[in-house]
Design a protein around this nucleic acid. Sequence first.
RNA 1: CGGGGCGUGGCGCAGUCUGGUUAGCGCGCCUGCCUUGGGAGCAGGAGGUCGGAGGUUCGAAUCCUCUCGCCCCGACCA
Length: 573
Amino acid sequence: MRFSQLLLPTLKETPAEAEVVSHKLMLRAGFIRKLASGIYSYLPLGLKAIRKVEQIVREEMNNAGAQELLLPMVQPADLWQESGRWKKYGPELLRFTDRHQRESCLGPTHEEVITDLVRKNIHSYRNLPVNLYQIQTKFRDEIRPRFGLMRGREFLMKDGYSFDATEKGAEETYEKMKHAYHRIFKRCGLSFRAVEADSGTIGGSFSHEFMVLADTGEDTIVVCGQCAYAANMEKARAMAAPTRPAEPQLPLARVETPGKRKVQAVCEFLGIPPQNLVKTLIYVADGKPVAVLLRGDHEVQEVKLQNLLGATEVRLADDKETFDCTGTPTGYLGPVGLSLPLVADLEVTAMANFTVGANEKNFHLRNVNIGRDFTVGQTADLRMVTAEDRCPLCGGQLGLTRGIEVGHIFKLGTTYSEALKATFLDDQGKEIPFVMGCYGIGVSRAVAAAIEQNHDNDGIIFPVPIAPFQAIILNLSTKDPAITRAAETLYEECRAIGIEVLLDDRDERPGIKFKDADLIGIPFRVMVGNSLTKEGKIEIRERAGGQTTAVSLADTTARLKQMVESAMTNSQL
RNA sequence: CGGGGCGUGGCGCAGUCUGGUUAGCGCGCCUGCCUUGGGAGCAGGAGGUCGGAGGUUCGAAUCCUCUCGCCCCGACCA
């Protein structure tokens, strides 16, 4: 491709709308342009990068036994009503009515459609398993689109769905997909972790998120410094607390704590560490109040609470609600004598002689002990893991990092197949529902994530496998016939041997070409200019690291090929 | 939806508080000269209903009302 003919509108200055680096750079590098909030046009260079990721995804999905198909983007409401999600999904689902007054929606995901397809066409265990995927534009009417391609309303996604005859089969498929995902992101040249994720209300027992590690990521993930353990905050566990200390139980004492409501204030006032205090929080779970006990220095992880209670909605009660159901103002609540359902975080059960609110304004209780002074209903891991915690698997130090979710795999089970009555006959002639899994990859987001992870002050530094072009040839003096001839020759040679190359043949000064080449992040830059005239040398510069190699004109193409191939192989498995 | 901010040539901004000739500046764009290894220089030029509608006024980018769009924080979410 010739730069002079390419729609590549690079910008010197960053448009005011962009906040994060990938968004800024994709605008400046002429990859994308915004049409409306969360809706972008992909320009040729941006599309090329996306196609690279798509192709890797295709190859690995196909290798793992999945088949590509393409499902409709417009979906009838009937199907969504059948699965129950027409009501559940909320305003994120963009709904509209067609000319016949039929209700429809733009597909944000395709469980319904694929399940319908399979139930109508597969009736026997002999045809299982099947694993189907598509790469398609999705639409989700996000509350707040932001960060360019990172969280758009319209975005490109690979979504796959598997159908197995048995739980065991579904688990094997899940593992296959997990493996394929590792290969995909590795091949894309991304630094990532697969983390255990909460499978939410979907009812699945298996779920992993694939997170690209980047400081600007929207999600916090917990990673063990010593072993492979990684999880998102909703799921992360810590090594179990040491068993309850054998210290003797001290007599219960009621102490006055005037005006001391916050954990910190109470602790300072009483001269105790927050690790020795138990706070009592009132939550509203599906409209019903429940008291949650937590060590003073810990925070509730609401998804864990939600899962424990089997609730569809949990939220912290406000001051008024708290007072209404306890008769005590917030700050002085405690478990002793409280007539609400009590759930406790595991850490609390390891504590003895701790301090709690007295359920009376301006008073706390000291030397409280579970069993003697009160009993808890349920105990579970309910808290947010912190950087001080240790790995639940190996005891190593845990760390918190930021990540960008680019992939998510779920074992769905029979939730959708049951709702949509998607069944087959097993080898006993019995009618049973398919066991499903679903597997997503944010393709456009993956490109943004790659840029978040790989850039410098001058622009993008693409990993070779997903770069829009592998190399760029700079003709540094278009008026010089010898230089131009050399650049053109190299360009033709490269194309002939399959190097994806862009020729900067514009009548511009060298500085502009250097800047643009750096900005758009092409891995190898081939410079044809003075050094050819003076020393007979062509320079090849690596975008990552800036290492420059001088070679003779005759050797350039072969050398470049070698460098490109070596970079591609390094990102293979 | 709550809070904050912004809409002025393609991009980045000034001007708005305190209304008053012809609405400026940098970059980009076009023409010519010149220049060619890190976003050159000189000269000339094109391009703006100041987001939109209504109002106040002799006069509105500027003041008032309404409205649309965009960005950030929060709630929310795969």
